[in-house]
């Protein structure tokens, strides 16, 4: 029986002409480029696994002679920022506390807004949407101070929820665009049929659209998780030092003026902060590309 199946071992009878001139140029160019992109990550990993004496002697590219995780432990639990010596773990949990509500709130708000302007157009909805999209290009620096005043007025300045609100507001343009475009692309008959069956605004949204929009919710989730985790500016302005997200704490640890520079601890801390978005990136693959390409989609 097995003989009938395609002969797997006879595939590609002739070896390919791997060494044409064009191929050599192509692959050597690629090798140089890949080195530029890949080596910094490699350098970070090996540096974080060395001890300080070894770093002082060797060069940054040499693999560690003796692998030690002391730097990782110190970066996570005992590195100091100012008077505080709890390491990055506190920043990590602060970031998680910021990330979870910000992601949920921003996606909820934006998906509902996108749905309202895609399927329930009302007078002026396109105008507000256009303002929103153009608003995405306004430098944050222009709006940062009045927002401080606004948040202070409603008593949220310096609190976790103030920062959550800021993330929700600035996530609005791209996410609303994402959801609006997706909901517009769905067949209109679906929407009409649901209306004929008597479903209202929320009924259609929760029972018809949300269940069939899982991919776009995933894209939004990836976009917001990496974006909010990587934020520095809002974290440093809208929260107090004891609530600083991981990026801010990382910068404070590494760029601390006093003390001896411990490069291995610094690199371990940098890696620890980068691990979350890197994991999202490597796990999500194609969806991540779709997420960032959403920014390139024209409205």
């Amino acid at each position: 029986m097995a003989d009938i199946s395609y002969p797997t071992d006879a595939r590609g009878a002739k070896p390919r002409r791997v060494m044409t001139k064009g191929n050599v140029i192509l692959w050597s160019t690629l090798a140089v480029i890949l080195a530029y992109y890949a080596l910094p990550l490699y350098v970070m990993v090996v540096t974080s696994l060395k001890g300080m004496p070894e770093i002082r002697m060797g060069n940054i590219f040499s693999p560690p002679m003796e692998i030690t995780f002391d730097a990782w432990h110190k970066a996570a639990f005992t590195a100091c920022t100012g008077l505080n010596c709890e390491g990055l773990s506190r920043g990590f949990w602060n970031s998680v506390e910021i990330l979870v509500p910000s992601t949920i709130l921003s996606i909820a708000m934006a998906s509902i807004s996108g749905y309202a302007i895609a399927n329930w157009r009302f007078k002026g909805s396109e105008v507000f949407f256009t303002i929103l999209i153009f608003g995405a290009f306004i430098p944050y620096q222009v709006m940062i101070y009045p927002l401080v005043i606004l948040l202070r007025e409603i008593g949220l300045f310096g609190s976790l929820w103030g920062l959550v609100l800021v993330h929700t507001v600035f996530g609005m343009p791209i996410l609303t665009l994402l959801f609006r475009n997706y909901f517009t692309s769905l067949p209109e008959e679906l929407f009409k049929a649901a209306r004929v069956d008597g479903a209202g605004f929320w009924g259609i949204f929760f029972r018809v659209l949300v269940p069939m929009s899982l991919p776009i919710f995933m894209v939004a989730l990836i976009l917001q998780m990496t974006g909010i985790w990587n934020d520095f500016l809002f974290g440093v302005i809208y929260t107090r030092p004891d609530q600083y997200p991981m990026t801010v704490q990382l910068n404070n640890i590494v760029n601390a003026v006093q003390g001896v520079k411990e490069y291995n601890v610094n690199m371990a801390a940098t890696l620890l902060t980068g691990i979350v978005p890197l994991t999202i990136y490597f796990v999500s693959g194609k969806l991540f590309v779709r997420g960032i390409a959403a920014g390139a989609v024209k409205g």
């Binding site: 910094p40 990550l41 350098v43 991540f288």
Partner: peptide, 16 residues
Amino acid sequence: IILYPFALSFIVTGLI
């Protein structure tokens, strides 16, 4: 490999 740096924050990029 070429795209992974884009997932990292500017803080991490700067420190690397």
